[in-house]
């Protein structure tokens, strides 16, 4: 979304003056530079990398990434506040993202969402006391053929029934999708993919960067 921001009822977490972006995180972010003609364009990938590594993007992280990309921290916050995916306060180890759009609703999506809330004892965009789970609610997840559906982190759960929810949430492996993964964003944060010719084999983009 959208012009109405979510997740802003509580103050953005400020870690104080202690740096939060490790060398490894910074290296990972920098590995995206050759892909785009401007540093600002690396903001979305950078935010993904940070959220994957730290769990959320607090004010300190915003300031540091602003520095790295040579933009104002308010520009970082502005972008973050527009997108539902980014959290500015700690979220649970696992985020359950429930679809609330039309196809899922017609097949019982509302009941599924209620069951998730009941079972975890929290509301939308909240986190359980033990830090295990957060709930997010999204519009259509493009999985309408197997609605009602929800994501647990990266894993899509299909044709979920309200009655299945307790077992689904109790299953420790509910976030594993078992597919081969690319570690482009959240794999081990290492700098060497910049030299392997696969990811950063840019030709023109680098030139464009120079001429900008």
């Amino acid at each position: 979304m959208a012009w109405k921001t979510i997740d802003r009822n509580e103050p953005v977490v400020d870690a104080g003056a202690t740096p939060v972006l490790t060398e490894a995180i910074r290296g990972k972010i920098e590995s995206f530079f050759p892909r785009y003609p401007t540093k600002r364009a690396v903001l979305l990938p950078a935010l993904h990398v940070i959220q994957d590594a730290l769990g959320f993007i607090g004010w300190q992280a915003m300031k540091e990434v602003a520095d790295l990309l040579e933009i104002h921290p308010s520009a970082v916050f502005d972008t973050i506040s527009f997108y539902t995916h980014f959290w500015t306060k700690p979220r649970g180890e696992k985020v359950v993202t429930v679809c609330r759009s039309i196809s899922c609703e017609l097949l019982g999506g509302r009941e599924v969402l209620e069951a998730v809330k009941d079972h975890l004892g929290i509301g939308e965009h909240e986190t359980t006391g033990d830090g295990k789970y957060s709930i997010a609610v999204e519009e259509c997840l493009a999985g309408c053929d197997h609605g009602p559906c929800l994501l647990v982190n990266e894993r899509m759960h299909k044709c979920v029934k309200a009655a299945d929810v307790p077992a689904l949430l109790a299953d420790a492996g509910n976030a594993d999708h078992g597919l081969p993964r690319s570690d482009l964003f959240d794999g081990p944060v290492v700098d060497d993919d910049r030299d392997d010719g696969v990811i950063a084999s840019t030709s023109d983009v680098v030139e464009m960067q120079d001429s900008n």
Partner: peptide, 15 residues
């Protein structure tokens, strides 16, 4: 012909 293809991931916004 040279071509680089990059995936750019969004962050949750229909628009």
């Amino acid at each position: 012909f040279d071509l680089d293809v990059y995936v750019h991931r969004g962050a949750g916004a229909y628009v």
